[in-house]
């Protein structure tokens, strides 16, 4: 497939465009004074048709809520700000309701996402609009994914981890969606199932669908993604191209991304000290300042804006 980078996609309308997305939850601390915890702040991301964009972040950084924000299935008390554009059109709550399951679909993390009391075939068929053909379409998808035909008559608890994963992918496959959000589809898999799952997701992008691949597994992201967005404390710290992850990470823009890259066993295996900030921590300056090796006093009080550098985006004063 033809690879797309920033330069040659400029004329195309992005499939999904997220601008300055912020997500807040009200929280009642002592007394009745209301305060907010900010889970996502100023998040940005652009996905073009046929492109896989990985959103990499550690657990607890609000990645799943990002998926829920785009699908419009956040809890009622969530407050969302910023702009979501789907095919150039504003993605309002109403529009999300019309599109989810049809133009936007989700590949969830585990077998727990399947209703324990319903046969798998029925759960996959529910997203196919063509009532007459749904059985055939579902069966074809199962064959394509290498699932034995009797899998459709099984209940979720009768599936192995790998089979469940394929059933979940089948749901996205049979839908007519243009955008697929894969929310952590790989943890807890053995090597073989891991590879297979990634291949299947890659396959989905071949039919010009855009894929947002949410993961904490950098290896998985590098294996299939075209672009990688690094998510930290609810912010996009960097959007890099796959090729930037090479050597000692010289082409990476943000110190956090560099640290991630160097922490991999095959590189330096050098861990990054410190912890991811808590969600209720108030951060005035750069979110990464506390752990950053090149941080200065300036970073403590000033928030870096995102800037385009080398065909990518980063949020650092010293990039």
């Amino acid at each position: 497939m033809n690879k797309k980078s920033f330069s040659n996609t400029k004329n195309q309308i992005p499939l999904l465009e997220v601008k300055n997305l912020s997500l807040l939850f009200p929280q009642y601390k002592e007394g009745l004074k209301e305060s907010y915890i900010q889970v996502i702040r100023d998040f940005e991301l652009t996905i073009y048709p046929g492109e896989i964009v990985a959103v990499v972040g550690s657990s607890g950084s609000g990645k799943s809520l990002l998926a829920d924000s785009i699908l419009g299935i956040l809890p009622d008390n969530a407050e969302i700000m910023g702009r979501l554009l789907f095919n150039g059109e504003h993605l309002s709550t109403k529009r999300q309701q019309q599109l989810r399951g049809k133009s936007i679909s989700l590949i969830p993390q585990s077998v727990k996402a399947l209703d324990p009391l319903m046969k798998t075939s029925k759960q996959v068929q529910s997203v196919i609009p063509d009532k007459k053909a749904k059985k055939r379409i579902q069966e074809e998808a199962f064959i394509k994914l290498g699932l034995p035909p009797e899998t459709g008559d099984k209940y979720p608890h009768e599936l192995s981890g790998g089979m469940a994963r394929r059933v979940l992918i089948a749901t996205a496959m049979v839908s007519e969606s243009e955008l697929i959000i894969a929310d952590e589809p790989t943890p807890g898999l053995d090597e073989l199932t891991w590879e297979e799952t990634l291949t299947n997701i890659k396959q989905l992008s071949k039919s010009n669908r855009g894929i947002m691949f949410i993961t904490h597994d950098i290896h998985a992201a590098l294996k299939i993604a075209d672009k990688i967005a690094v998510f930290y404390a609810g912010e996009t710290l960097e959007i890099a191209n796959k090729e930037d992850f090479s050597g000692k990470g010289e082409r990476l823009r943000h110190p956090y991304t560099k640290a991630l890259w160097l922490a991999l066993p095959e590189n330096n295996f050098k861990p990054l000290k410190g912890n991811h900030p808590e969600s209720d921590e108030v951060l005035i300056g750069c979110v990464f300042e506390k752990r950053c090796p090149i941080a200065t006093e300036f970073c403590k009080t000033n928030k870096p804006k995102s800037a385009k550098i080398n065909n990518g985006i980063t949020r650092c004063f010293y990039a």
Binding site: D68, R100, G101, L106, S126, S175
Partner: peptide, 14 residues
């Protein structure tokens, strides 16, 4: 609060 209700919602059911 279960995952399967979240997934069903994501599939457009409501």
């Amino acid at each position: 609060n279960s995952e399967f209700i979240r997934f069903a919602k994501a599939k457009g059911e409501r």
